[in-house]
Design a protein around this nucleic acid. Sequence first.
RNA 1: GCCCCUGUAGCUCAGCGGAUAGAGCAGCCGCCUUCUAAGCGGUUGGCCGGGGGUUCGAUUCCCUCCAGGGGCGCCA
Length: 560
Amino acid sequence: MIRHALQAAQAAGDLPPFDLPETIPVTRSAKPELGDYASPVAMQLAKAARRKPLEIAQAIAAHVDTSADFVQSFEAAPPGFLNIRLSDAWLRAQIDAMIAAGDDVFALEIGRGQKAQVECVSANPTGPITVGRTRGGVIGSTMANLLAALGYTVEMEYYFNNAGRQMQLLGLSLQARYRQALGQPVDLPEGGYQGDYLVDIARELVEQHGDALKDESWEYFKGQAEAAMFRRIRASLDRINIHFDVFFNENSTYEDGSVWKVLEGLEERGYVYRAVNREGAPPEEIAKTPPDAKDAVWFRSTKLGDDEDRVLVKSNGEPTYALPDIAYHIHKLERGFTYLINVLGTDHIIEAQTVARGLQVLGYDPEPVHVLLHQFVTLVEGGETRRMSTRRGEYVTLDELVEDVGADVVRYFILGRSPNSHLEFDLDLARQQANENPVYYIQNAHVRCAGIFRQAEERGLTDEGADLSLLGERELAFVRKLLEMPEVMVQAYEDLGPHRLAFYALDLARMFHPMYDAVRVLHSDVPEDVAKARLRLYGAARVVFRRLLKLMGMSALEIM
RNA sequence: GCCCCUGUAGCUCAGCGGAUAGAGCAGCCGCCUUCUAAGCGGUUGGCCGGGGGUUCGAUUCCCUCCAGGGGCGCCA
């Protein structure tokens, strides 16, 4: 619209000729009384046009075509902004549109016909899900919900590894716990898993099998431990609405040989060498390596901007995580996903970079792979932080947290912070079921909408035949706020920031509650026609709150 | 050593290139006879960590310094 006006103004000689910018910036207006949208183009063009910004803005405003039904006004304002106001009639029409869309309100078409995948959590089954891993799961599942709302067909995937020393240790630890459960005086292996969950699993095994397993190998116990852990992990995640479609075992990249194909591919392209130490290793690093050390296989990632080369195959012949992870990502790309999100803690940043470089070398376009890194979580209680370690058995599990504060609170507290900020989970605040706690504030907005409809039904009031022109300025201001939601969704998608939904929800609730207080439906002074119009407005509010809560994986309660 | 994150109201945090920087909590003053007060109204409170730069314009981008937090294995 502005572009056309610029061209028209130039054609009419009101503006001198100059190149138009590729995109015309238009943003939400900072001050609602000035308009709904604003564009600062005129100020950017001042130099090229050699005119004062305000004059340019006025020239644009004079030539703009305001016949579109959604535009009320289009004005130039000092120092050079163009302010655009939406028409009331159009806003009112959106109320009906939102209600008609219902649970699909603000469904977008960005990802239509495309497959997306979100990988998150991906903890090996050596223990219960902890609060730290939960953050990735909440972020990932929210992004998955969002992608679905944008039209993508979405899969949630969990990548795990059930080989290696840690799993062996888990098997040995369960074996020891089983024998202890039989009354044998056995110690846990050195560095073994001390958590009580293995004691529970051991007891279950005794209940089912008695002492029949006393001579089984650690491999057998590893299998038992793995199966039991996955049952628990899935159940824990289910409680906070994190559901996986696929559990991908790293081992399958060995079974189909793709791990070795990756290595061959990298080698053919000259990115691999064998040596005891990486090239360019400093003397102190070389000094630390034992004299009898064998060669490892190195990835020459420095050729791609890395600051040191990375090990692909250890000197004992086993690959590190990098090779299977590259193979796994190739597998993902070949499954036809055009948009992939990999939710990782920041400690995995090197891993993500190595994978991206590996893909690049092998001729795959890493562009569809989006890495969403998040910082760590600490729990704060009574002003003190609680440190966690899975191996030492010191941690707060997701289950404990959910029992303590509830699933919705867990999700919202995690979502309410930008992924790349450290999250201090304040248990004292989370436990409060009061106004300080934003979760209840937001949910109460939905509850209140539901309450109005419940009461209206009892009194025989419906919104049938509502005349929305009876709504006032305050109500239309709220409609404007509702209509921001798709913009928030797109922004959350583009910058991988699901926290934007959480903040928007809180913002919307803060606008809702004062209105609820002032704009009554069932009140003796409210004429029936006004009541009908307002009831319909609350219908739209209910639909939007419900959609928001569902996107965040929270429950939309009818009654608190 | 290298890398990441964070310094915005007393506290917890939004805003991350645009018009006079926003919320909540805490503080103070009020509001329950009609949709649950888990609510509402009012009010106090900011050299946007310091210093340079880029820009018509910087809380927002770049550099640097200061202060906190966290990562960085031939573990995954």
